[in-house]
């Protein structure tokens, strides 16, 4: 990295940011994107590196961490969903992602950037298990 920014900061990007050369919004104002609210949604991804993957204990930790933020936080094992509410212990427990799988996160709300950074850091730290 050329600058001194946070080591994982480069993985967080605004979702739905206009691409260069993208057409301007239609004048009719009908161009509402997908199902997410129009407030800023940040996204990022991290690969499960701990042996057991997203088993019971990591699922509890992920849920607890997500709950400590006000923002809406979701993740998926594919970049286009289906999206799981990271604050729902039952839904998170059912994902059962294995080591090597990538978790795609997205967050929106007042503390979205901090929430996203914390969730990615938890996965990177192997859920503090190893």
């Amino acid at each position: 990295m050329p600058d001194g920014s946070a080591p994982d900061g480069s993985r967080i990007r605004p979702e739905g940011a206009p691409l260069a050369g993208a057409p301007a919004l239609a004048s009719g104002g009908q161009s509402i994107e997908d199902s997410m609210p129009t407030e800023d949604t940040l996204s990022g991804a991290a690969t499960l590196a701990n042996q057991a993957g997203l088993h019971a204990r990591p699922a509890v930790k992920l849920t607890q961490l997500a709950k400590s933020f006000a923002s809406r936080t979701e993740f998926a094992v594919a970049p286009d969903g289906p999206w799981i509410d990271a604050k729902s212990p039952v839904k998170v427990m059912r994902v059962k992602a294995a080591k090597g799988e990538t978790l795609h996160f997205r967050a929106s709300g007042p503390d979205a950037e901090a929430a996203l950074a914390a969730l990615l850091a938890l996965v990177d730290a192997k859920f503090d298990e190893e």
Binding site: V60, T63, Q64, K67, S68, S88, P89, K91
Partner: peptide
């Protein structure tokens, strides 16, 4: 018990803790 406690640890209401465990 594990799911209810996980939900409760985030400060959720009694009703939400019960409902979350019953999702099982």
């Amino acid at each position: 018990a594990v799911i209810a406690a996980t939900e409760a640890s985030g400060g959720s209401s009694l009703e939400l803790v019960k409902r979350t465990a019953e999702e099982l």
